[in-house]
Simulated assay, not measured.
Amino acid sequence: MRDALLSIRDRLDGFGVLLSGLCAVHCLLGLVLVTVLGLGGGALLSPSIHEVGLALAIAVGVVTLGLSAWRHGHLVPALIGAAGIALMALALVVGHGPLEAFLTIPGVGLVAFAHIRNLRHAC
C-alpha cells in the first residue's frame, strides 16, 4: 500500500512538472505569437484556457507538495511551491493580459522546481 501511494505521489510530481512546463510554454508562445506575429489571439490566449490551466496546476501543486512535505518532512520544496502557487493565484486575480503572464511564468517555474525537489527527496 505504501509503495502504491509513493508511486502515485511521484506521478503527481511528474505531472506537476509537465503541467508547469506546458503552462510556461503556452504563456511564452502566446505572448510571442500575438505580440510579434499578431497570430492566434482568439484561441491561444483565451482567458478560459488560462483559468482552467492555472486552477488545475494550483490544485496539483497544493495536493502534491503538501503530501510530499508530510511524507518526507522536507519543508523547503513546499515553501518554494507555495511561493509559486501564490504567484499563480495572483495571476488568476489580475485578469487576462501581460501581467498575468509575468506572474504565471515565474510561478509555474517555482512550482516545477519544487516538484523536482520533491522527486529528489523521494529517492
Rank of each mutant, 00 (worst) to 15 (best):
L5F: 12
S7A: 14
S7E: 13
S7N: 12
I8R: 12
R9E: 14
R9Q: 15
L12G: 01
L12D: 03
D13P: 02
F15A: 15
F15T: 13
L22H: 08
C23Q: 13
C27N: 10
C27E: 10
C27L: 03
L28V: 15
L28F: 11
G30V: 06
V32I: 15
V34S: 11
T35W: 09
T35K: 10
V36Q: 09
V36L: 13
V36A: 12
V36D: 10
G38W: 04
L39K: 09
P47W: 05
S48I: 15
I49K: 10
H50G: 13
H50L: 04
E51W: 11
G53S: 08
I58D: 03
I58H: 05
G61P: 08
V62R: 01
G66T: 06
G66V: 07
A69I: 00
W70T: 13
R71L: 12
H72C: 08
V76P: 00
I80R: 10
I80H: 08
G84D: 03
I85G: 07
I85M: 14
L87M: 14
A89H: 00
L90N: 04
L92I: 05
V94R: 02
G95I: 02
L99A: 14
L99I: 14
A101N: 08
L103T: 07
I105G: 02
P106A: 06
